[in-house]
Amino acid sequence: MSIVSDYSDGVPSISYCLTTFEGEVIAESGADTPVYAASTIKLAVLIAALRAVDGGKLRLSQQLTSRLTFNSSAPGGGTFSFETDPDETDDGMPPEGRPVSLREVLRRMIVVSSNEATNMAVELVGLDAVRGALAVCGAASSKMERLFGDLEGLAAGLTQQTTARDLTAIMSAIVTGRAAGRSSTRFMVELLRAQEYSLIGPALPAEARWGSKSGWVTGIRHDVAFVQPCGGTDPLGGFILAVCTRAYGEAEATTAIGALSRLAWDLSRTRPGGLHYVLEGPAEEWATG
């Protein structure tokens, strides 16, 4: 039975894009199909924040004030609050009004996909900075027009959108160091490796090293990951895989993403030369660590 929601039209769709680290497409299907981005758009928020850190506008150590109330992006919209919606609050964040570092806000945004932390980060850097981060990555079909939980914005037609191709472009920009500086690249990769809700990673063999960012709402389930083997004769071989699903149930979508993940792994091991990328510059430290 297909799933219909605010984010799914009920027409089942699975799209994917498999690339090398440098962006060479190895396999794809429907890679330019627009889908509701869900939490995968948080990658662009992460890049925007760390580019501001690199530029000296922000510091990871700076203290923010934990918040549950945010501004709607809808024309004439007011504010909205997570106080009445326990599903949106993050128990790992300090109580409202207490200090929390930008480093911790970004960590919770990626590792546990905290919407509360994400909205704090977006209001700090601004939606224009998020758009700029997407442009830097070459993610031309992606956009973030409102915060998470902004129902007035949703009713006004404001959305968060991406494609499988864009997700691989964003991840490529992160892991190759094109999105941010050396220290920020290392920090982003650490967060992606600590991801607690990956769909691609658990489907891979134990020897795989990976980092990912997933996203899900009713009728939507996506993941994008960078993957490398542990050891072997080609320790820098690897790939980036993005899989986006719409209108499938949770179990069906998870099964499909897992199957494509294993196929991508098998292809990376059998393709002549592997999906090889020699990481240089900012990323070389984590690639060989």
Rank of each mutant, 00 (worst) to 15 (best):
G10W: 09
E22R: 00
V189D: 00
G211C: 03
T163N: 06
D6N: 04
G289M: 04
S101V: 06
T168A: 02
S184A: 15
R221E: 11
Y16T: 07
L58P: 07
A264K: 09
C137W: 10
E28H: 12
F226E: 01
Q161A: 07
L199T: 13
T162L: 04
V278K: 01
P75V: 03
S8D: 10
A283P: 12
L106Q: 08
Q160K: 09
A251L: 07
T89H: 05
D128M: 02
P12R: 02
L279D: 08
V189I: 08
R67E: 03
T218I: 01
N71H: 13
D223C: 09
G281N: 12
L199W: 15
E116P: 05
A203Y: 06
T118L: 03
S8H: 05
R131I: 00
V224F: 05
F80A: 07
K57W: 07
Y36E: 03
D32L: 02
G238E: 02
Q195A: 15
L167G: 02
Q160F: 12
L236E: 15
D266C: 03
Y248P: 08
S261L: 05
L191Q: 07
R59N: 13
P95N: 08
S8F: 05
T288L: 15
V278P: 10
E24M: 08
L106G: 11
I257D: 12
P282L: 05
R165A: 15
E285G: 00
D90V: 03
A155T: 04
M1Y: 04
G149L: 04
R178K: 15
V189G: 02
T288K: 01
A139V: 11
G201M: 04
V11P: 05
E145T: 01
L192F: 10
F239Q: 09
S2L: 04
V278T: 14
